[in-house]
Amino acid sequence: MEVFADYLARIDHPQHRSQMEEVLTWVAESFPNLAPKIAWNQPMFTDHDTFIIGFSVSKQHWAAAPERAGMIHFADEIAQAGHDHTKELVRFKWDRPVDFSLLEKMIEFNIEDKADCSTFWRK
């Protein structure tokens, strides 16, 4: 997880830093085939040089971005879980338990859906 060390060090709030580190470590350990990287100043994971999921942080939440196709695919589940979201990302409140189940489904969906993708983003 050395690739994310500088990013994590810039998160001022210790609890937020710890939770983001937990999420990134969980992704790396749960999906060892994914490549961790920093791009656009954000941590993300790729598979055969195609984007799988990215993360960002703010004062009120951290966010996961599975691309628009992932958001559409999981729209009902995201809404039922009560997560705030946009067309491109899901916001997870710092004071709620991490929804690893939803993250796992989004990552698995993107890995499978983009298995034959030869570009970074879907076209």
Rank of each mutant, 00 (worst) to 15 (best):
W26H: 15
F120E: 01
T50Y: 01
I111H: 01
H73W: 03
K93C: 03
H13P: 00
L34C: 05
H16Y: 05
E88Y: 11
V57G: 10
D113K: 10
S118T: 15
F100G: 02
E88K: 14
D76V: 12
G70Y: 02
R10V: 03
A81P: 02
V98I: 15
E112Q: 11
E108Y: 01
E29I: 02
A115R: 13
D6H: 13
S18I: 02
H83C: 13
G54K: 02
V98R: 01
A64S: 09
F51W: 06
T119N: 05
S18R: 13
L8C: 13
F51N: 10
M106L: 13
Q42W: 05
T86P: 04
R122A: 06
G70N: 04
T25D: 14
R91P: 07
E67G: 02
W40C: 03
V27A: 00
H61C: 03
H48W: 00
D113L: 00
I11K: 12
D116C: 09
M71R: 06
T119G: 02
M20T: 07
A81L: 12
T50V: 08
M44V: 06
Y7R: 08
D12M: 04
Q60F: 06
D49Q: 11
P66G: 11
G70I: 05
A28P: 03
K59D: 08
M1G: 13
I38P: 06
Y7F: 12
A9P: 04
V23R: 12
S30N: 08
P36V: 05
T46W: 02
H61E: 03
K114I: 06
T86F: 08
E104M: 03
P36T: 09
R91T: 02
E22G: 09
K114R: 14
L89N: 08
P97L: 10
F100W: 01
K37V: 01
I11Y: 11
P32R: 08
Q60P: 01
A115D: 06
Q60N: 12
V90K: 00
A64L: 08
H85Q: 09
L103W: 08
T119R: 07
H83D: 14
E29K: 05
Q15T: 09
P14Q: 06
F92Q: 03
N33L: 12
D84K: 15
W26I: 08
F55H: 04
A64R: 01
A81K: 12
L102E: 00
F4W: 10
I53P: 03
A28L: 10
I52H: 07
F100M: 02
R10C: 05
E2S: 13
T119E: 05
E2R: 11
H13S: 13
S101Q: 09
K93I: 00
F100N: 03
I11G: 13
N33V: 15
I38R: 11
P14M: 06
T46I: 03
F109T: 08
I78H: 07
E67S: 15
E88A: 15
A79Q: 11
A9S: 15
K114N: 08
G54V: 02
